[in-house]
């Protein structure tokens, strides 16, 4: 939870990620971020808020990762709505989660906070 510069934040070590599945990290402000490692995608790591706005619980990192028409998604483990990992938009309902840019730098997985 150290800050390297103003906007890129370290969230965890690359080893903490699980390929094709999710983990959750706690950053400052008690923000929960769900992180997904998808080695086949150019972005490699995706990050979204962990809170499921439909199920009202912090569970998205426990969802199953996959793709829908080529778009990488995670399905909520509660009611199975799919969220795009690129845009955060929910595919079935009019709602969305927040997405973060990610990178692996300085031995950390980092997300960009605007």
């Amino acid at each position: 939870m150290t800050t390297t510069n103003e906007q890129w934040i370290n969230v965890c070590k690359p080893d903490d990620l699980i390929d094709n599945a999710g983990v959750c990290a706690l950053i400052n402000d008690n923000q929960q971020v769900a992180l997904f490692s998808l080695p086949s995608q150019p972005e490699r790591v995706f990050a979204i808020t962990n809170y499921d706005p439909i199920g009202s619980a912090n569970v998205l990192y426990r969802g199953i990762v996959g793709c829908q028409n080529g778009e990488p998604i995670v399905a909520s483990p509660l009611y199975k709505q799919q969220y795009s990992l690129r845009t955060g938009k929910c595919i079935q309902e009019e709602t969305a989660v927040t997405c973060f840019k990610t990178r692996i730098a300085e031995g950390y997985v980092q997300i960009f906070r605007e």
Binding site: M1, C12, D16, V23, C24, A25, N30, Q32, A57, N58
Partner: peptide
């Protein structure tokens, strides 16, 4: 290792 809420913290989910 997977049986925790956060990879980088031992805290619990406050929303529960």
């Amino acid at each position: 290792k997977r049986f925790k809420q956060f990879v980088n913290s031992d805290e619990s989910d406050e929303n529960i």
